[in-house]
Amino acid sequence: MSEKVKIRLKVNGEDVTYEVDAHMSLMRALREHYVWDVKCGCEVGECGTCTVLLDGQAVKSCLTLAAACDGHEVWTNKGLGYRDPLTARLQEAFVECGSVQCGFCTPGMIVAGAAYLKHGGKADRAAIKNIISGNLCRCTGYVKIVDAIYLVAKEIEEGRLTA
């Protein structure tokens, strides 16, 4: 049996203690604790659907060792949506712009987009495409996903929303 490690971390604003296998990824640890908006698409960092914010930075949680997250803060798309107005607005923008088809890449896409906007990302389609290039989508052709992030970036630039 693999060695267990106890980690304390903040997940979506809540202090939690997880007992995880020492080799377990953050993605697996979150999913084992029913944080199901963190999806598993490849488990080797190629698809990006498991993207979460770790201490404010977008990371692929399947490539992040859970044990190394002891004492750190994790936000997922779902958690952000209920607590962070910017992410909530980005989620709405995904609906308005028709950016959601099967929805499986969506949580990771929104976290990647939210991280971009929180770090001062501009309403610039090329820059947005670059920032989501680690997140694969097979349904949309990306146009409407870029539309949604662009729309919210524009709202921030026009002072209608704060990043």
Binding site: W36, D37, K39, C40, T76, N77, K78, G81, Q91, E92, F94, V95, E96, G98, S99, V100, C102, G103, F104, T106, P107, I110
Partner: peptide, 21 residues
């Protein structure tokens, strides 16, 4: 019209549960 689909908001909010969830 481009009306929002019934499931779009749940998917955007990360509420949709798939086969593995």
């Amino acid at each position: 019209n481009p009306v929002p689909r019934h499931d779009a908001l749940a998917k955007a909010k990360g509420e949709q549960l798939y086969s593995d969830d």
